[in-house]
């Protein structure tokens, strides 16, 4: 935990301000998308480094890959319903069951892998970051290992996280991607026009958590007990 804190501190206190400074002075303060993209990528670096440094076991790797793949397969299964996807719900379940760090990796990986099937674009890093962040928060908030969180609590968290965190960040990103200058008016327009999509997405997350959370968490708990997966490190 301390090394991640150190890395995060270095990135938040030194590298991000330096990038913003370079964006303002060297690029004439007009490349918001480029600068924000760099910042989004920086935030993912500590997770990648910690994970690599730790030399994860095969079982841990596989568990993360399985959850990410289920999320992607879920996105593929609901391709005909726009925004109505189980990805966020599965990422939250992974975060709750496997911990904050694994939650982040499942989310980021699901975002990256699913775009191999649906098309990579300038939106990929943003999706990776949003899914990852939601998985990370789910892991942090529901970290009590002895008791599974209740369904209603998970649903409230899932709905809010999808609406506020995912919708908030993705819409902000698409504003920077689409228009050259930051403007509150355009941002408001983007939020208003994207609101119903975000609402559908949030409703989907609540629905899937309602149906999936209990059985999937129980399955994961069973597998964890049966195979002694991911011991809690103190």
């Amino acid at each position: 935990m301390s090394r991640r804190t150190l890395w995060s501190a270095a990135i938040i206190l030194v590298i991000i301000p330096a990038t913003i400074w370079a964006g303002i002075y060297l690029l004439n303060d007009r490349r918001y998308y480029f600068v924000s993209l760099l910042i989004i990528l920086y935030t993912m670096i500590p997770f990648a480094l910690i994970f690599e440094r730790r030399k994860p076991q095969a079982r841990e790797l596989i568990a993360i890959a399985v959850m990410a793949s289920l999320a992607v397969a879920g996105r593929a299964a609901f391709f005909m319903l726009p925004q109505f996807k189980p990805v966020t719900a599965i990422v939250i379940i992974a975060g709750v069951s496997l911990g904050a760090e694994a939650g982040f990796l499942v989310g980021a990986l699901a975002g990256f892998v699913s775009n191999f099937f649906f098309g990579q674009g300038p939106w990929t890093p943003w999706q990776m970051f949003c899914f990852g962040l939601i998985g990370f928060l789910a892991g942090l908030i529901f970290r009590r290992r002895d008791k599974l969180p209740t369904r209603s609590v998970l649903c409230v968290f899932g709905g809010l996280a999808t609406l506020v965190i995912y919708g908030g960040i993705i819409n902000f990103g698409s504003h920077l991607m689409f228009s050259p200058q930051f403007s509150w008016e355009i941002l408001a327009t983007v939020y208003i026009s994207g609101f119903w999509f975000d609402l559908v997405h949030a409703a989907a997350t609540v629905f899937f958590l309602l149906v999936l959370a209990r059985p999937m968490l129980e399955k994961l708990e069973r597998v964890k007990t049966k195979y002694g997966l991911i011991q809690e490190k103190s």
């Binding site: 790797l61 993360i64 890959a65 399985v66 990410a68 793949s69 990986l109 892998v113």
Partner: peptide, 8 residues
């Protein structure tokens, strides 16, 4: 991880 997910 990426390889495994793409295969899964």
């Amino acid at each position: 991880l990426l390889t495994m997910s793409l295969r899964f």
